[in-house]
């Protein structure tokens, strides 16, 4: 199927990892759905920016580290990454604090991004 014909799906991460399971399940969705002829993007918004911060160590919680899988997502046909600028700023974070380098977008760009997608999946 051509890229033009593929439906665009945006996973929006708005929850921090570990406190809830949303980020982990959003990641599973990205890992699986890339195999199904969908044009996948992921946007990190609000506490969702904490999903991809460096130095996560949930060893004592006996759960998988969430951030470490994101750099591998292009191998799973996920190629578009976005982060909301204000969400980074509010949390005192910069791109240097993240394990990947998403495109930094403002709120208007995020709203425009929603418009481009056939489905928005909240996690």
């Amino acid at each position: 199927m051509s890229a033009e014909a593929m439906k665009k799906v945006l996973v929006v991460m708005r929850h921090a990892p570990y406190g809830t399971f949303y980020a982990f399940e959003g990641l599973q969705t990205l890992l699986i759905m890339g195999a199904y002829e969908l044009d996948l993007g992921v946007a990190f918004v609000d506490d969702g920016v904490y999903v991809i911060t460096r130095n996560q160590n949930p060893k004592a919680l006996q759960v998988k580290q969430v951030a470490q899988t994101f750099p591998a997502l292009p191998d799973f046909e996920v190629h578009r990454f976005y982060v909301l600028e204000d969400s980074l700023k509010e949390r005192g974070l910069t791109l240097d604090d993240l394990v990947i380098q998403p495109q930094v977008i403002d709120r208007a760009a995020l709203a425009a991004l929603f418009e481009e997608h056939a489905a928005v999946l909240p996690f």
Binding site: K7, I32, E37
Partner: peptide
């Protein structure tokens, strides 16, 4: 069944509506 079924539902629908949280 697997998450692939969700991918198919998205492909074959005009709208996906999520309820949660």
């Amino acid at each position: 069944a697997g998450l692939g079924q969700l991918a198919l539902m998205i492909q074959e629908s005009d709208r996906l509506v999520t309820f949660g949280g």
